[in-house]
Structures are given as structure tokens and as C-alpha cells.
Amino acid sequence: MSNQTTLLLSPSPHMHSGKTTQLAMWGVCASLLPVLGTAVYLFGTYVLILTLVTCIGAVLAEAASLALRKRPWTGEVSSLVTGLILALTLPPHAPLWVGFVGGVIAIVLGKQVYGGTGANPFNPAAVGRVFLLVSFPAQLTMWTAPFDGVSTATPLGGAEASLWTLTVGTHGGSMGETSAIAILCGAVILFAMRLIDWQAPVGTVLGTALIALLVGEDPVYHVLTGGLLFGAVYMATDWVTSPVTKRGRFIFGLGIGVLTMVIRVWGSYPEGVSFAILLMNALTPLINRAELSLREKRRKAYVRATS
């Protein structure tokens, strides 16, 4: 044996937890199952078909974009997650083509033009959702009641709903957004798998409650209605488009909550979660910069104090 040892040189990080992006994305899919299951129970099997078509749109768009860019096929699971999240923010009886178009737009304009998974500044599902809402307002506001499919208004659109109804989800609304219990189940799964941390969702809920209290409306009601919890758990926690520091993510969440309430109370749209998420996505680089310069200042102060 020679005395020479092989030194492996590589930049940090050096330890790997064994978690891969693919595995994490399957985890997110799993955490969406309670929400999807509840949606099917409440609104019928059409929900499954609409979800499937939206996911097909997203995955096909991903495959076509990667083929056009001559890149290897890697992001199939993350586009499936985008498709699932987008589908669950749609009204339960939206036409199938709406889901398909949304899936394609979310992946192509929301992600692939920026360079694919991990390079997108905006949450792809939020891009798809806002694009659909602005382009096809009639199809995106066809609210139906659970079980019987009769046209109805949503609580944010003026319908009466008790606290219990809002918790279980037996009221009109987007298919994955009505049941607080199902979303909390998903959140627990995500926490247990350590895929998300609490800062962004808790910030969102606090921001919403704070403004609700300030303008004299019921904070619990505003947290439970619309897409707030769904957005807080599944869209505000996106690793790519939220700030890198924990405090940054808390501020990010607060901003989403506050903007959502501003849009709900004063805006012409009844609901504003996806708008608020896009607005805060646009502010994320600035939050990161502020956090970075703050850390740099602290480090310098520390160096000065200890030297």
C-alpha cells in the first residue's frame, strides 16, 4: 500500500441528507391527497377529471419545453405538483380546457421561460391561476354548492356560512380550498416530513387576522374563507419563490396576509390570495437583499467588537 491518500476536494455543502428534490416533490403530492380526497367527496368525480387534465397540461408543457430546449427530462414531479396545486384552486365545475390552458401557462410562462425548476421568480401555480382569473373571469367564478352541484355564491361573495361549515368545507368555493381540516391535515404531513417550516403560513394567517381586526371584521372568518389557508400552506411555502431566511419568510407571509385583506376589503376582486402571492414573490429578492445586508452589518459589528 502506498502512503498516498486520495483527497476529494469539493465546495460546500458536504453532507447530504438523502432527500432529493424528486422525493420531496412526491412528499408534497402525498400531502395534497387529503385535500384532493375531500374535494372529490364534496364536489363529485368531475373534480378528479379536471385535476387530471390540469396535471396533463402541466406535465406535457414541461416535457415539450424541455424537449425544445434540449434539456434532460428531470422536473416531471415538480410540474405534477404545480398542476395539482393549480387544479385545486379552480372552481369545481370549471371547463376542462380551462384547467389544461392553466397548466400549460403555469409551466411555460411561470417556470420554463426562466430556465425551469428552481429558476422561477414567481410561483407557477399562482401565475396560472391569476392568468386564468384575468382571462376567463366567467369560467373562474362558476361556484357550485357541494354534493348537489347547484349554483351558489361563496362566503366571500356574500353567502352565509357558519364556522362549522367553513371548517369542514361544505360551502361553495374552489375545490381544494373549502375544507380547513383537509388543508391542516396536509400541513401536518408537510411538517412531519420537514418539507415546510411554520414562518410563511403562520405569517400569512397573522397578517390576515391583523388587518381583519383593524377594519373591524371577524378574523377567524377571513382566515377560513377563500383560498387563504390553501395558499398559506401550499403556495407561500414554495422553496424557490420565498425568501431564504426564516425571518424573511415570516415577513413574506405577513405581506401575503395583509395584501390579501387589502384586496378583499378595498379591491374589486372578492379574493386576492394568488395576487398577493405574486406581489410578494416580486418583493422576495428585495427581502433577501435587506436580510443579507443586515447580516453583513451584524457580522462587521461582531468582528469589530471581538477584535
Binding site: 425544445l68 430546449r69 410562462l109 411561470g110 420554463q112 421561460v113 426562466y114 430556465g115 425551469g116 429558476a119 421568480p121 414567481f122 401565475v127 391569476v130 392568468f131 384575468v134 395584501l259 387589502v262 384586496i263 378595498w266 379591491g267 374589486s268 376582486y269 386576492g272 395576487f275 398577493a276 405574486l278 406581489l279 416580486a282
Partner: peptide, 29 residues
């Protein structure tokens, strides 16, 4: 990583479009 055709102004315009969509939330306020 940005596709060749979108580099520079192209991606700038896409981003401006998404930001403008987001600002629609304030319309009519």
C-alpha cells in the same frame, strides 16, 4: 439557463407582464 430567445428584453417583458397581472389586484380600489 434562460432559453436563448428569451434572454434580455424577452424575459424582462414576460416578468413585466406577470407583475402587471399582479397589480391588477389593485384595480378599481
Amino acid at each position: 439557463e434562460i432559453p436563448h430567445a428569451f434572454r434580455g428584453t424577452g424575459i424582462g417583458l414576460v416578468t413585466a407582464g406577470i407583475m402587471s397581472l399582479a397589480f391588477l389586484a389593485f384595480s378599481g380600489m
